[in-house]
Write a protein that binds this DNA or RNA. Structure first.
Lengths: 160, 160
DNA sequence: GTTCCTGCAAAGAGTTTGCATTGTG
DNA sequence: CACAATGCAAACTCTTTGCAGGAAC
């Protein structure tokens, strides 16, 4: 699935969701969705706000938080609580389930998939008679090479 | 290791750590450590504060946050960032590495151990040339039985 | 006596809320 | 034209900070 396919798929999901519940198809919601699907990978409310401003869109924080809640509800966006109290979001349509490896030096986030993990989660569910719905595995690690290769690029840690 | 053994072991670690760095062995630090090791499993700064008050100890929030930072630094306490922006702590001396299964209905936290998970973490580290230091796996699940068995007991979710 | 620690109150970050206004259906 | 969504500012929660007084060594 290309990224523009993911966007149009996401737009369909959104419009269907809005229609079903009598919610409104506002320009703001569409713009936020476009911005997320075109420009952002792991982001917080504030970086979404800045990206919108750079596109010439003045959308209030209240609307951003509302919209993110809406998108999480309809599965267009996932919300993560990483260490340091960071709440980060990522688009979820057209991407497969994955987990996160975070560099302790710079906060760079590497995604990874491990099919073994699904087995661990299922096993735990069986053991405690619970039905796992989702899970987050975050691995915190140091780079092996001297100096972190992502030190300059950084997004989230360095700006703290 | 019994829980009082864990406390005295934790006290030794704390005193050694303080001595090594020329930090002070204050009554507040000792009381906070005692309270955590005697009364708390998964807790936030505010519930620690309430437990201290119930013991007749008036310790300011500033000191609580300072002390928690100190205890995290010397490994006496672990800090977790769960969903909903909850920062929770738990004592770590005398307990083995474990992960968390959280009931979506009530927020009840079940601990579990799965040796497979260590292999997953190591594998990811090798793949990306990083040295994993620690990891958090949180599984969110629904109870299979009708109505959640922990619904009344709750600690963190219900009070939100 | 020096330095670290505590408590208080104020400040700060991130998020939520109330309400008047705007715009979709 | 009804009602949902937006924008703004104020409120709120959790955490951090600055500073004066107090305690450990």
């Amino acid at each position: 699935m290309t990224s523009s396919e993911a966007l149009s798929h996401a737009q369909e999901i959104l419009e269907k969701y809005l229609l079903e519940r009598g919610l409104r198809r506002t320009e703001e919601r569409l713009e936020v969705l476009r911005t997320i699907y075109e420009e952002l990978t792991h982001f917080d409310a504030d970086s979404l706000h800045r990206h919108l401003l750079e596109r010439g869109l003045r959308i209030s924080r209240a609307t951003i938080y509302n919209t993110l809640d809406l998108f999480v509800s309809c599965g267009l966006v996932k919300r993560y609580a990483f260490a340091e109290g960071r709440t980060l979001y990522e688009r979820s349509v057209g991407r497969r389930q994955h987990d996160h490896l975070i560099c302790i030096e710079c906060g760079h986030i590497q995604e990874f998939c491990d099919p073994q993990l699904g087995l661990v989660v299922e096993g735990v569910g069986r053991l405690f008679h619970m039905n796992p719905v989702h899970h987050d595995l975050v691995v915190y690690a140091h780079c092996q090479v001297e100096g972190c290769p992502h030190r300059s690029e950084n997004s989230t840690f360095a700006t703290k």
